[in-house]
Design a protein around this nucleic acid. Structure first.
Lengths: 352, 352
DNA sequence: CGTCACCCGGCAAGCGGTTGCCATCAGTTG
DNA sequence: CAACTGATGGCAACCGCTTGCCGGGTGACG
């Protein structure tokens, strides 16, 4: 692709003209179309000299193999899809990166679909491209288990952070994460923890809540939860209004976005973090380290998750579906938003 | 390997089996394949009752039109590509949203390509999908003008924030933006402004710098610039080391990411923003409003830009290429990072 | 010098839809 | 009642590329 036969015959800069096909190249090179095809698809099958000649002529003509046409008989497109529930969520940035690089390495292109938090849109887009790709990674999908299974029956699918029967998945060790959080808070003296729920349809939300309860129970902490709230900064802001409930000294949000939104409202109300209340997030997205104070949060190996997803997808043609999803490790990143427990004084607040 | 002519509209949850084609549906519905094709592609062309019957049978069989197969003879895939230089940059979030919704409205799917700041990857991916989509939006591309033109010759292309001859583009009113910034700073008494450069290859970087110089000259301000620095938070951090140069009382960064990185370093050095120095960004990405102090920045109509790009792309088949790129308006969002000029005292700093 | 295993290029049958063109057929029109 | 028209469905030729199969040409081997 660096040679780039820029010397295209059609100097017109307007719209596309009919691009050359293998037949055009074949004629110009004095060989048959099959030879041209082979020269590109399986060079070893053709005499080296012929390959070179064909390639040369092709370059002169500005020929490129038409991916659609070649995908049809082959049955494979060399394209993978990554469906995310919301591209504007920084969590996906790293996942995308990981997936993209693994795909590139395997000589596939990764196409990204943004569901914009809409199940309808998600299903629609998925439906449209499903047959056009070699496999799909579902990240943060809002679709039902059965819808996911239906898709998985038609093309290899791998789900992130969710356990769908018969569909391979990659999840985080939420249970362990919750233990880390509970222990950290316990060490700081916190005995009342509030959990801010994410979407009800979220599998991880359930995992985190039950993991937190379990860990807290083992440490003698009391936990409560409020929600659900949307997994965005705005959701965190809204959650602030539920704070009087339970008088927690520490709050764990479903994700960093919520935690950040929450902190902002608290601070604007004069409630100091972590002096008056500690806040913990989940994901360790970039903004978590630029807010003041820095957000204590659970770091997930997002990039690795993206890579693993694509790798698993590509190997799934040969490997049988493992019955249990792959679990990735997490760690706690302690920053400024958590501190020693203080006498509580959170006044009831209401949204403006 | 999938000949396996087993019976089975099989409920198996394994890998994909050979999906039904229009021929299968045709046989089951007692019509010809063309009728099935038309029942989906142009329902008006077939008797309403027949359409319904075909659709019913198709649903039972689980038939879906194969997008690849239908795209081949039609020459159109109903897919548009949006190539961004770096998905993790929040700027693109809104652009993607806008593009996505405009595409969805036109019944197209938007596929996203992340160039990961790599020209090689960008060209490679573009090359791979160019013939597989109906058009491409290039956002923040690092490719050369000639490479862009070459692509534009093969498929409709539209560039964002760049003016490439013969290729339609959508840019922001950088000149006006710079005037707004200069005036705002002038009102606050600033007479020395430092511009932090973005990538040299960036067209907008040049536009902004010249726009700033022009506006500043008209207001009797002195401007200097340092750089280039990468357009990320990290780039902003690095730029902090160049601050002693020129002793500015106000700094304009290439984008918000840099501005944020810069602010963080300044603050960690005990330099107060805006008390000691004012900072202005560009783009108005989400983090700009969650940092402390809030970042004064130029707001670009990103979403509208994404929408306009797709709209222009879809209509480009009929409309000739406008000689001048479309220009979108901008406005200045004043937050806490800019304030009245104070007696200067920025000590030289060096990176750790 | 006859055989045989390769090497190589060509032929042609698809892959799954789309669509121009034609044949029907029923309903109109004069 | 004949000529005419519009609605429908089928036929078959692609779209551009892949690939199983075939056969001529060669060098190696016996």
């Amino acid at each position: 692709m660096e040679k780039e036969g820029e010397s295209a015959p059609g100097p017109a800069t307007g719209r596309a003209e009919r691009p050359p096909t293998i037949y055009d190249v074949a004629r110009a090179a004095g060989v048959s179309a099959s030879t041209v095809s082979r020269a590109f698809a399986r060079p070893g099958r053709v005499n080296a000299g012929t390959v070179e000649r064909v390639r040369l002529v092709a370059a002169e003509l500005g020929y490129r193999v038409n991916p659609l046409a070649s995908a049809l008989p082959r049955g494979r497109t060399s394209m993978l899809a990554l469906v995310v529930s919301d591209v504007t969520n920084p969590v996906y940035g790293e996942i995308i990166r990981g997936a993209e690089s693994a795909a590139a390495e395997a000589d596939h292109v990764l196409i990204l679909i943004d569901a914009q938090e809409s199940v309808r849109l998600e299903r629609g887009s998925l439906e449209r491209i499903l047959l056009g790709v070699d496999g799909v990674v579902l990240a943060g999908t809002r679709m039902s288990d059965s819808a996911i299974r239906t898709a998985a029956r038609r093309r290899p699918v791998i789900v992130l952070n969710r356990d769908v029967a018969d569909v391979p998945g990659i999840v985080l060790d939420d249970r362990h994460a919750m233990r880390l959080v509970a222990e950290h808070l316990a060490e700081l003296g916190h005995r009342d923890v509030l959990y801010i729920s994410g979407p009800e349809a979220s599998w991880v939300n359930g995992m985190r809540w039950s993991g937190l309860r379990e860990a807290a129970a083992a440490l003698g902490q009391k936990v409560q939860r409020v929600g659900p709230f949307v997994p965005t900064v705005e959701g965190g802001r809204r959650a602030a209004s539920a704070l009087d409930a339970g008088r927690p000294t520490a709050i764990l949000a479903y994700n960093d976005q919520q935690a950040i939104g929450l902190m902002r409202v608290l601070q604007s109300r004069g409630i100091r973090v972590p002096h008056d209340v500690s806040v913990v997030g989940f994901d360790d997205i970039y903004p978590a380290r630029i807010v003041t104070p820095g957000l204590t949060t659970v770091a997930a190996p997002l990039r690795a998750q993206g890579e693993a997803a694509v790798t698993a997808l590509l190997s799934s043609r040969s490997t049988p579906v493992p019955s249990r999803p792959m679990t990735l490790p997490v760690k706690l990143i302690v920053r400024g938003s958590t501190g020693r427990r203080r006498p509580l004084r959170i006044p009831p607040v209401a949204l403006p």
